[in-house]
């Protein structure tokens, strides 16, 4: 099923989950992503780093086709998940997004109860046959989101009443409730305090066991802490991609070096 390219890829890893080739994104007249090739592994945390406006979030949104919702955005190129082209005309973005969950920069729980927040995805995808099933799914998701102990007594309280860090973990629980295979995180900690950030980072490390996690982050320390692979974007180009240790200790490209030493960005 896998492409030949997979074996040619510089990445020496087990399973390639997402394979992007020649991806270009235009916002109107702006060329936001320029010819990006990248292979993202299963059961790995991959960090996208780079200065603001370098296109890392845009690229992330290509992977579950969230750019479809922006009228002026035009995506070209080839992105495959498990060898299947996600931009194929036969692909329903709804099915794709059930497979590729997403957590956003700002915690955005629905203005509903904690339970309903988590149960919504499984409900619309028909994952639960009955109420008991749904309860199990919700509990499992909240446990995976490392928030179960804090909310188990108030599942029917509004999700927006939680603290910022709790809200973000609720959003992660909501994302994993639909049993995705890939989890995209767009700067999930940028609105959180250091303690909540620590909790979410721990959680990301946990999630690696089952998912391919792609995280966009502004914080190089965070990338170094949580990821095994790092991609450095600059002005829409993917400058360097490799093992996180390698990128931070021995970057090949001078631009990468400038960025991680704090001279650009």
């Amino acid at each position: 099923m896998y492409d030949n390219r997979a074996s040619e890829s510089a990445v020496t890893a087990d399973d390639i989950k997402i394979e992007a080739k020649g991806v270009n994104v235009h916002y109107g007249t702006t060329h936001a992503i320029k010819d990006v090739d990248v292979s993202i592994l299963d059961k790995t945390v991959t960090a996208f780093i780079g200065p603001s406006g370098c296109g890392k979030s845009t690229f992330l949104r290509c992977i579950n086709r969230m750019n479809d919702t922006i009228d002026v955005a035009r995506v070209t190129g080839d992105i495959r998940i498990d060898g299947e082209d996600i931009n194929d005309a036969r692909v329903d973005p709804v099915q794709l997004r059930a497979k590729v969950g997403m957590v956003f920069q700002k915690p955005n729980p629905f203005p509903k109860s904690i339970y309903d927040n988590v149960a919504y995805g499984p409900k619309i995808h028909g994952l639960a046959k009955n109420k008991g099933d749904l309860d199990d799914i919700v509990e499992r998701a909240l446990r995976r989101g490392a928030i179960w102990d804090e909310v188990k007594d108030r599942l029917h309280a509004p999700g927006t009443g939680l603290s910022g860090g709790q809200q973000q973990r609720l959003c992660i629980a909501r994302a994993v409730a639909t049993e995705p295979e890939v989890l995209l995180m767009d700067e999930p900690c940028s609105a959180l305090d250091p303690i909540a950030t620590g909790q979410v980072e721990e959680l990301i490390d946990e999630l690696r066991r089952d998912y391919s996690v792609v995280i966009v982050t502004h914080s190089m320390q965070q990338a170094a802490r949580v990821s095994q692979k790092t991609a450095f974007f600059h002005l829409g180009n993917l400058i360097e991609y490799g093992d996180t240790d390698e990128i931070f200790t021995n970057p090949k490209d001078p631009k990468t070096e400038s960025y991680i030493t704090g001279r650009i960005g």
């Binding site: 919504y120 619309i124 909501r174």
Partner: peptide
């Protein structure tokens, strides 16, 4: 809110 809903596959 729209992103959140689309993100879980609505």
């Amino acid at each position: 809110i729209r992103d959140a809903a689309l993100g879980v596959g609505a």
